[in-house]
Every structure is written in C-alpha cells, then in structure tokens.
Simulated scan of single mutants.
Amino acid sequence: MDQEETIIIKARCNVDEGQVARKIVIDKNIKLEELEYKLRERFDVSYDKRVELYYLDEQDHIAVTFEDELALAMESSKVPIFELVVKQKAIDGFYTYPKVSKGKPGDVFEVLVESQWLTITNATRDDTKAWGTFIYTDDSDVVKALAHTEKVELTDIPPEYNVIATVRFLPGCLKYYGSSCQGITTMSFGPYISSFIIEEVRVIAAPSYNEKSYS
C-alpha cells in the first residue's frame, strides 16, 4: 500500500496567552477543511469562533479559502507558514446534536452534527419528525431538515466528517407544507409560533488519532 506523502508546516495563532507557533506534520494533499480542523485542535480554538486561514509569503498575508490556494501554498520551496486568525462569531448559541435548544426569532445557533448521526438510518427514524419545507417548525429534527434541504448527503455508514449547521430562527408561519426529498418526508402543520431555516453547512474532518506534531 502506498504511503501518503507528508510535509512539515509552520503554523501560528493568537490565543489567550499570546501568539503561539507550532511545527506540524501533515499529508501534503490535505484538504482545506481537514487543515482547519487540525489547526483548531492544536491551538484549542473552539467552533463558536470563526477563523480565517492565511499563507505567509515573505511580507504578504495571502488568504487561503479555496483548495487551489492551499495547493499552491503546499508547493512552496520553503516550509509553508500558515496563520490562523480567530474572529468572534455573531452567533447566539453553540450546540451538539441531538441536544439543541429553541431560540427566539433572530437568534442564530450553530449545531455540531457528528458523523454517527449523518446516516440514512438515523435520519429516517420514526421517533424524529420535521414539519415544513425549507422553513421548519422550531421543534423539527435538525438532521431531517439537513437532509430534506439537500444540505448534506446521507450514507449507509457514518462518513469520515462531521458538519456544523448554521440555524436561524424566524417567526412562526400560518402554514408549513410537507414534502419528500432525499428519502425524507416532512409533514404539513400550522399555524405554529416559531420556525428555523438552515442557512449554511460546513464540513469538518472527524477526529483522527494518528497525527504527529513537532513543537
């Protein structure tokens, strides 16, 4: 079996104690979301904070937001240097599925859905329900809503990633219309007092336990 090609990168991040720098061994063909996960883990940056990733090229800070930009940074003749910039997120709560609280209209929550829940078997369980199409009652199951809006693709076995869903709460609707999509059937209902929509979904790497690092 072919061994993956690894390289050493330098990474730095401003944390509570000041700027911290590390050397890390990574797969040369690492994906952007996997690199973000690894750097968050090494610098202990939680997912209730937004991050921006930059590649340091001499005096320039070059934003890395696409896979081709990361690939160019990895081809550097020098040891690639990255900086993780932490930004405060304008969110009102962070939860881990299935424990998700209800919000009031205007609130924005982020919901971590771990790999074990991103399966067809879980999403089609009879003990979870969803009402509506694109706009759901606030007591609807988040995974059902994710699949129904085609924000995630469900599999038979847990995938090698987790997702973070950005959920925005809205006022209630007079009527919610059920429909079927991706094997998920939602129900009609109404009126109801509060709603939510799935604004965004980010894919993040699931934890790995065979990483190496050099400080």
Rank of each mutant, 00 (worst) to 15 (best):
T65R: 12
F66T: 15
F66S: 14
E67A: 11
E67K: 04
D68P: 00
D68L: 04
E69F: 03
E69P: 01
E69C: 03
L70G: 01
L70Q: 04
L70D: 01
L72M: 08
L72T: 09
A73H: 02
E75C: 06
S77K: 13
K78F: 10
V79Y: 04
V79Q: 14
E83L: 07
L84H: 08
L84A: 10
K87Q: 15
Q88W: 05
Q88I: 08
A90F: 07
I91W: 06
F94S: 12
T96D: 12
Y97A: 10
Y97G: 12
Y97T: 13
P98L: 09
K99Y: 12
K99A: 14
K99E: 13
V100W: 05
V100N: 07
V100L: 11
S101A: 14
S101D: 12
K102G: 06
K102F: 11
G103C: 05
D107Q: 05
D107S: 10
D107A: 07
F109A: 02
F109V: 04
F109I: 04
F109E: 02
E110G: 06
E110D: 14
E110A: 09
V111N: 02
L112R: 06
V113C: 12
V113A: 06
E114N: 08
Q116P: 02
Q116A: 09
W117V: 00
L118W: 08
L118F: 09
L118R: 08
L118I: 07
T119E: 03
T119S: 08
T121P: 00
A123M: 04
T124V: 07
T124Q: 14
D126C: 04
D126E: 11
D126L: 10
D127R: 10
T128Y: 07
T128G: 00
K129V: 10
K129W: 09
K129M: 09
A130N: 00
A130D: 02
W131C: 00
W131D: 00
G132S: 06
T133Y: 05
T133K: 11
F134N: 13
Y136F: 15
T137M: 09
T137V: 08
D138K: 11
D138W: 06
D139I: 10
D141K: 07
V142H: 01
V143R: 00
A145W: 03
L146I: 06
L146T: 05
A147E: 00
A147F: 02
A147L: 02
H148D: 10
T149A: 12
T149D: 15
K151I: 01
E153Q: 13
L154H: 01
L154I: 03
T155M: 10
D156W: 10
I157Q: 15
